[in-house]
Design a protein around this nucleic acid. Structure first.
Length: 662
DNA sequence: GTGCTCTTAAACAACC
DNA sequence: AGGTTGTTTAAGAGCA
C-alpha cells in the first residue's frame, strides 16, 4: 500500500519535474520554430499573391478616379494645385497614416518636380497600394498565429521598401519624361519580395543603395537642383509657416521625419552643434545622428567624411532636399512606421505571452500579474493534470482546468530567471534559505497564488508560520490555518486530505509550533526563537549562505538580491502587476524590515509582518466555515473576492472579518 | 554516498 | 460512530 503510493509519488514527481519541464520547453522551442518557419513560408506566399491582385485593382480604381476628377489637366501650376488638391487626394491617400507624408505634401513635391499626371497617378496608386497592403496585412495578421507577425511585418516592410524603390525609379523615369507605369505594374515589385523576407540590415542597406543609386546623376542632370533650391527655400519658409495649422500644404514634413530637418535648418543647427562640439572637444561628428565613425550615415550613403565639416558639406550637397532625399525620407519614414507597428505588435504579443505564461490565457480577470512562476516538484499527486472533479468550480481558471506546472513547468528564462524564487526544486527551501519573509514574497503574488492552482514555493512550516503571523493575535486554530491555506492559495483548495495531513504533521513535528490551550480550544502559535534557531541552523549549514550572511544584515543582502530580482522582474513584466515597482519595492522593503526585526528581536520584538499594503483593494466576502472541505472548494465569487488581504484587514480592523471566516 | 530537509502517506489515539 | 485533531513513523526526493 505505502509502496504503491510511494512509487506513484515518485513517478509523478519525476514526471512533473523533469519530464514535463523538458518536454514543455522543447515543445515550446519546437513550436516556435515551426511557427516561424511556417509563417515565413506560407504567409509570404499567400499574401503576396492576394496583395498583388488587390493592389492592381485598387490602383486601377485610383487611376480611374483621378482621371475622372481631372482629366488630363496639368498639375504644374502650384495655384491650380491648391485648388485641385482636395480633389486630387483620393481616399486611398487620405487613408495614409499621419506618419506618412500627407497627400498634399506629396503632391506638391511631386508637382514641383514636374511630374506628369500619369506619374502622379502612379504615385498615388503606389501609396494606395501600400495602404491596402498594410490593411490587408493587418487583417491577415490578426488571423494568423502570433508567431507569424514578425515575418509578415518584415515582408510588408520589404514590400513597401521595394514599392518605394519602384516609386523612386518611376519618379526618376518620369523626370526623364518616361510615362508612368501602368497601374497594374505598380504592384509588381511586391512579387519579388517574399524571397527576401529577411530584411537584414545589409539588405536594407542594399535597398537604400538601390534607391539612392544611379538616379542621382540623372536627376541632377535634369535640372532637379533647381527644384531643390526652390524646395529648400520653400521648405525653410514652410518651417515658419508650418506653425500655421491652417496651411494645408507645407511643402513637406521633412522636418519631422527621420532625422530630417530641412537642410537650411540642419545647416544652422549643425553649425551651432559644431560650435558646441568644438568647445567641448568632442569627437568630430559624434553627435550628429547622420554622422558617425567618419561616415555619413544617411541611408545607403556611407560616404567617408574625414571631419565634421566635410560631412556637413557632403550632407548639404548630396543630401539636400531633392526628390531623392525626399523619397529616401519617405522610405525611412515607412521603415520607421513599420518598425513601430511591428514593435507594438511584438509588444502585444509579448504581453500576451507573459499573460499566458503567468496566468494562463483563460484567465479572464485582469488580476495583477503574478511575479513568480511556481513549478510543483513534489506535490506529485496533486498535479492539476489530474483534474479533480471539483476543479471546474475553482475560481482560478473558469474555462481551462489549471495545469500550470504541466503546461509551463519552468519558464525562468522568459521572465528572467533571477526573479524566480520558486522554480522547481527551489521551491522547497526557498523561503527558509533566503530568509525571505513570506509576506514580502507572497505579497506581490497574492492574486496569483490565490487564483492560480500553483503550489507556493514555501514549505509547510513556512506557510503555517505565516498564517499564524498573519493572524490578529498570532495564534490560530488548526481549522483557521486550514482556512488561511485555502484562502491564500488556490492550490490548497484541492486534495485537502493530503495537505491538511501535512499541516498537522508539520505542526506536530516542528518545535517552533507550539500548541496552546485556549478558551476556544487548542490554538497554535509560533515559537519564533525556535523558528529562527532552526532556520539559522539551516543557514549555517550552508557555507554559501554563511558567506553571504556574516551578520544579521545578511538577511538584508539576501533580501536585496530578491528585491533586485523582483524589480528586475517588474521591469521585465508588463505594467499590470498588482504591485507597481514602487509598491513592490515597498513590499520588499517591508519584508526586509520584518526580517531584520526578527533577527534583532530574536523573535521577541514584533514578529508580525507588515501587511502588504500595496495590494489592490479587494472586498472581502465571507467564507463558509467549512470551506476546507475536500468537496467544497471556494466558490468563484468567494475566492475572487476573498483575498489574502483579509489578514491585512484584520490588522486594520481587528478581527472583524477573520472570525467570520472560521 | 551521506545526511539533512521536506513532502507524502499512513497508523493510531484522543477528543468532540 | 464518524469526524477532527494531534502524534508518530516511514519512505522518497532534492540538495549540499
Amino acid at each position: 500500500m505505502m509502496q504503491e503510493s510511494a512509487t506513484e509519488t515518485i513517478s509523478n514527481s519525476s514526471m512533473s519535474q523533469n519530464g514535463m519541464s523538458t518536454l514543455s520547453s522543447s515543445q515550446l522551442e519546437a513550436g516556435s520554430r515551426d511557427g516561424r518557419s511556417s509563417a515565413g513560408d506560407t504567409s509570404s506566399e499567400v499574401s503576396t499573391v492576394e496583395l498583388l491582385h488587390l493592389q492592381q485593382q485598387q490602383a486601377l480604381q485610383a487611376a480611374r478616379q483621378l482621371l475622372l476628377q481631372q482629366p488630363g489637366s496639368g498639375l504644374k501650376s502650384p495655384k491650380s494645385q491648391d485648388k485641385q488638391r482636395p480633389l486630387q487626394v483620393p481616399v486611398s491617400v487620405a487613408m495614409m497614416s499621419p506618419q506618412v507624408i500627407t497627400p498634399q505634401q506629396m503632391q506638391q513635391i511631386l508637382q514641383q518636380q514636374v511630374l506628369s499626371p500619369q506619374q502622379l497617378q502612379a504615385l498615388l496608386q503606389q501609396q494606395q497600394a501600400v495602404m491596402l497592403q498594410q490593411q490587408q496585412q493587418q487583417q491577415q495578421q490578426q488571423q494568423l498565429a502570433a508567431q507569424q507577425l514578425v515575418f509578415q511585418q518584415q515582408l510588408l516592410q520589404m514590400q513597401q521598401l521595394q514599392q518605394q524603390q519602384h516609386l523612386l525609379n518611376m519618379q526618376r523615369q518620369g523626370l526623364l519624361s518616361l510615362p508612368g507605369p501602368a497601374p497594374g505594374q505598380a504592384a509588381l515589385p511586391g512579387q519579388t519580395l517574399p524571397q527576401s523576407a529577411g530584411l537584414s540590415p545589409a539588405e536594407l542597406q542594399q535597398l537604400w543603395k538601390d534607391v539612392t543609386g544611379g538616379g542621382a546623376h540623372s536627376m541632377e542632370d535634369n535640372g532637379i537642383k533647381h527644384s531643390n533650391s526652390d524646395l529648400s527655400t520653400n521648405n525653410s519658409s514652410s518651417t515658419t509657416s508650418s506653425s500655421n495649422p491652417a496651411k494645408a500644404s507645407p511643402p513637406i514634413s521633412h522636418h519631422s521625419i527621420a532625422n530630417g530637418q530641412s537642410p537650411a535648418l540642419n545647416h544652422r543647427r549643425e553649425r551651432e552643434r559644431e560650435r558646441e562640439r568644438d568647445s567641448l572637444h568632442e569627437e568630430s561628428g559624434g553627435t550628429h545622428p547622420l554622422y558617425g565613425h567618419g561616415v555619413c550615415k544617411w541611408p545607403g550613403c556611407e560616404n567617408i567624411c574625414e571631419d565634421y565639416g566635410q560631412f556637413l558639406k557632403h550632407l548639404n550637397s548630396e543630401h539636400a532636399l531633392d526628390d531623392r532625399s525626399t523619397a529616401q525620407c519617405r522610405v525611412q519614414m515607412q521603415v520607421v512606421q513599420q518598425l513601430e507597428i511591428q514593435l507594438s505588435k511584438e509588444r502585444e504579443r509579448l504581453q500576451a505571452m507573459m499573460a499566458h505564461l503567468h496566468m494562463r490565457p483563460s484567465e479572464p480577470k485582469s488580476s495583477p500579474k503574478p511575479l513568480n512562476l511556481v513549478s510543483s516538484v513534489t506535490m506529485s499527486k496533486n498535479l492539476p493534470s489530474i483534474s479533480p472533479p471539483n476543479l471546474p468550480q475553482t475560481p482560478t481558471t473558469p474555462t481551462a482546468p489549471i495545469t500550470p506546472m504541466a503546461a509551463m513547468p519552468q519558464v525562468p528564462s522568459v521572465l528572467g530567471g533571477a526573479n524566480v524564487p520558486s522554480m522547481g526544486a527551489m521551491r522547497r527551501r526557498h523561503s527558509d534559505k533566503y530568509s525571505m519573509p513570506l509576506s514580502s514574497e507572497i505579497a506581490p503574488n497574492y492574486e496569483f497564488y490565490k487564483n492560480a492552482d500553483v503550489r507556493p514555493p514555501f514549505t509547510y512550516a513556512t506557510l503555517i508560520r505565516q498564517a499564524i503571523m498573519d493572524s490578529a493575535d498570532m495564534q490560530l486554530t488548526l481549522n483557521e490555518i486550514y482556512s488561511w491555506f485555502t484562502r491564500t492559495f488556490a492550490y490548497f483548495r484541492r486534495n485537502a486530505a493530503t495537505w491538511k495531513n501535512a499541516v498537522r504533521h508539520n505542526l506536530s513535528l516542528h518545535k517552533c509550533f507550539v500548541r496552546v490551550e485556549n478558551v476556544k480550544g487548542a490554538v497554535w502559535t509560533v515559537d519564533e526563537m525556535e523558528y529562527q534557531k532552526r532556520r539559522s541552523q539551516k543557514i549555517t549549514g550552508s557555507p554559501s549562505l554563511v558567506k553571504n550572511l556574516p551578520s544579521s544584515l545578511g538577511y538584508g543582502s539576501a533580501l536585496n538580491a530578491s528585491l533586485q530580482a523582483a524589480l528586475a522582474e517588474t521591469s521585465l513584466c508588463h505594467g499590470r502587476l498588482s504591485g507597481s515597482p514602487p509598491t513592490l519595492l515597498h513590499s520588499a522593503h517591508e519584508g526586509l524590515n520584518g526580517s531584520l526585526d526578527h533577527l534583532d528581536t530574536n523573535g521577541h520584538g514584533s514578529p508580525r509582518y507588515s501587511p502588504p499594503v500595496h495590494m489592490p483593494p479587494i472586498h472581502v466576502k465571507e467564507e463558509p466555515l467549512n470551506m476546507d472541505d475536500d468537496d467544497c472548494p471556494m466558490s468563484l465569487v468567494t475566492t475572487a473576492n476573498h483575498s489574502p488581504e483579509l489578514d491585512d484587514d484584520r490588522e486594520l480592523e481587528e478581527g472583524n472579518l477573520s472570525e467570520d471566516l472560521e
